[in-house]
Every structure is written in C-alpha cells, then in structure tokens.
Design a binder for these strands. Structure first.
Length: 104
DNA sequence: CGGCTGACTCTGG
DNA sequence: TCCAGAGCCAGCC
C-alpha cells in the first residue's frame, strides 16, 4: 500500500472534518513516512477542482500559505475556512489550539 | 538517467 | 513579536 506519498497525503486530508484544520506537520506525522515538505508539495499539486479539502491544510503558524503567482487563492481559502466556522484574526492566523484536527 | 523545484518546520537573536 | 537560516525528499522535464 504505497502507490505514491502524494496519494496517501490526499487520503489523510480527505479525512479532515469540516470546521477543523490540520497543519502540514500534523499530516506528515499521520502518514508516518514523509516530511512536512512533502505534504506541502503534495497539496500544491491538488487541483482546485479536486474533492480534497486542501483548504483545511495550513502551515504550523496557523496561517494560509500560497506557493506563488498572485492567483488570490489565499482569500478564497480563508473564506472557505470561515464558512466552515474557522475564524482567523486580523493577521490571518487561525487558532490552531482551537481548530487543530486531532486526527482519529 | 540527472538535476531543479517546492502551500514546510524549528531554533536562535 | 518579527526575521533569517538550515534540513529534507518525492515528482517532473
């Protein structure tokens, strides 16, 4: 059971319930044999049309990361999280202590 | 087949 | 509280 690290990362992200968020490091620990970077790179490869709630995946600071290109996806992602009940402060940081997904 | 790129994370100042 | 540097591995051309 190891098609590709990316595939497994997608599976984990898909398990994240609404109203909760997970950090790249959190997911990397759940997968077990990949680093936080792999998660970030994998998530970046996720198409916006995917069924994967990549919007719930944020960095360890609780902030939304954006690879590059001013596609403005940052605001979209933050809006999606807010729509699920995940509020962020003026700095755009999410309270991980409150919304962090503990996993199952 | 070889090399480059990339939504990250942590410690110290 | 904010800024900067170092470590790491899988996919793609």
């Amino acid at each position: 059971m190891n098609p590709t690290i990316y595939k497994q990362i997608y599976e984990i992200i898909r398990l994240i319930p609404s109203g909760k968020v997970a950090t790249y490091g959190q997911i990397s620990e759940i997968v077990g044999y990949c680093t936080a970077r792999m998660v970030g790179y994998a998530v970046s490869s996720i198409p916006l049309s995917s069924v994967i709630p990549w919007q719930r995946v944020i960095n360890y600071k609780g902030e939304i990361s954006l690879r590059s290109s001013g596609s403005g996806g940052e605001l979209v992602q933050q809006k999606l999280l807010e729509s699920e009940g995940v509020k962020s402060d003026q700095s755009g940081r999410t309270d991980l202590e409150q919304y962090r997904w503990e996993g199952e």
